[in-house]
């Protein structure tokens, strides 16, 4: 990774957006040896408000901490999509939940996946949507080792949720790999 990579993850409060930013940033910073600046914005509400996290990943010192144009944009809600879709670089990669309607992009790469639906219906674990998304991102981007993220997931959550959390990550990773083959 020579240049700076900018990643934005956005959705609504309660979807684990900020947690996913923390896990991804931690994995890049402490397990992949990168410099990371992770920021977040959220409304005063605990749930339902807009939620966003930005990550800058670099081998160099990072000064400005916010995403200017994202290389990767991950969107998990309609509101976040209408607000942030234009923040992607023209060649950037969009990862978006299949349930969201949006204007098709002329350039760049788009990956659609049923994160929320798989988490809810197949894994019976809707709060793990964010981990599923991280697994998918990990496979698509190939920017870091899956084990780096899995190590952080194991350390961050309570032990009794570890198996279910790692399962969600692995399921997302598998979906990502499948999408790459298409």
């Amino acid at each position: 990774m020579s240049k700076q990579i900018e990643i934005r993850i956005a959705g609504k409060g309660g979807q684990g957006i900020l947690t996913s930013g923390y896990i991804l940033g931690n994995a890049f910073a402490l397990l992949e040896g990168k410099n990371v600046a992770q920021t977040q914005s959220y409304g005063p509400e605990a749930r339902g408000g807009a939620s966003k996290t930005d990550l800058i990943i670099s081998d160099e010192v990072i000064y400005y901490t916010k995403v200017r144009k994202a290389n990767y944009l991950i969107l998990l809600s309609e509101e976040a999509t209408s607000r942030y879709l234009d923040d992607l670089t023209s060649s950037g990669t969009l990862i978006i939940d299949s349930s969201i309607h949006f204007e098709p992009r002329k350039e760049g790469t788009v990956f659609k996946s049923n994160f929320a639906k798989i988490a809810r219906e197949e894994l019976k674990n809707p709060i793990a949507t964010n981990l599923l998304m991280l697994g998918y991102f990990c496979a698509i981007s190939d920017l870091l080792k899956p084990d780096s993220i899995k190590t952080v997931i194991s350390e961050h959550f309570r032990k009794r949720f570890e198996e279910a959390n790692l399962k969600a990550f692995d399921r997302g990773f598998e979906e990502g790999k499948k999408a790459l083959k298409k």
Binding site: Y22, G25, A29, L30, N35, V36, A37, Q38, T39, Q40, I62, T65
Partner: peptide, 9 residues
Amino acid sequence: EIIGHLREK
């Protein structure tokens, strides 16, 4: 707020 809520290594 930006520095308070910024995560870095």
